[in-house]
């Protein structure tokens, strides 16, 4: 059982795993009680398991525990809380931008990553940034609205 060290939500954490190729997702969900990231496909196609790795939105089903070593990782839980949400989370709450909400983790994480590199994205830029994040319930319009709101803009 090897031990892998990384920073998760501002804390140094150890991940024990018998397999260096184990995706980070399972360590987060099963060993670290961080269930915000969701298993959606395991193929890097849907975005439900996204986390921020050194400020970039990465699919945690596609990064192994050994690749996570030394990285600074932020999960949905690390962004904010119900009482003190991150501005993107607050916008999602204001716009009620979730139905089942299973994809919401990926939407919030990718929106945060977008706003870190582009403070005022256009609606089309938001659509492109979220193009590889899937939602089945059809919440897209509210998610776009929420990301516009989080960047201080209103939906055109």
């Amino acid at each position: 059982m090897a031990v892998y060290h990384c920073s998760i939500n501002g804390q140094n954490r150890q991940i024990e795993s018998a397999d260096p190729d184990q995706p980070l997702l399972y360590a987060l969900r099963n060993d670290l009680a961080l269930t915000g990231a969701k298993f959606g496909c395991g193929l890097g196609q849907c975005g439900a398991c996204s986390v921020l790795v050194d400020g970039e939105a990465i699919r945690s089903c596609q990064i192994s525990v050994s690749q996570a070593v030394g990285k600074t990782i932020t999960t949905l839980e690390g962004l904010g809380t119900i009482d003190n949400p991150h501005p993107v989370q607050a916008a999602f709450i204001t716009d009620q931008a979730a139905q089942c909400g299973y994809c919401a983790n990926g939407m919030v994480i990718n929106a945060v990553a977008l706003l870190m590199r582009n403070l005022k994205p256009s609606l089309d830029e938001i659509k492109q940034a979220l193009a590889n994040n899937l939602c089945r319930c059809g919440t897209h319009d509210r998610i776009l609205r929420a990301v516009m709101r989080a960047s201080g803009q209103v939906m055109p």
Partner: peptide
Amino acid sequence: IAAKVTGQHPYMH
């Protein structure tokens, strides 16, 4: 919704 977008909602999964 607040719990769903902050990772606090207890899903089946």
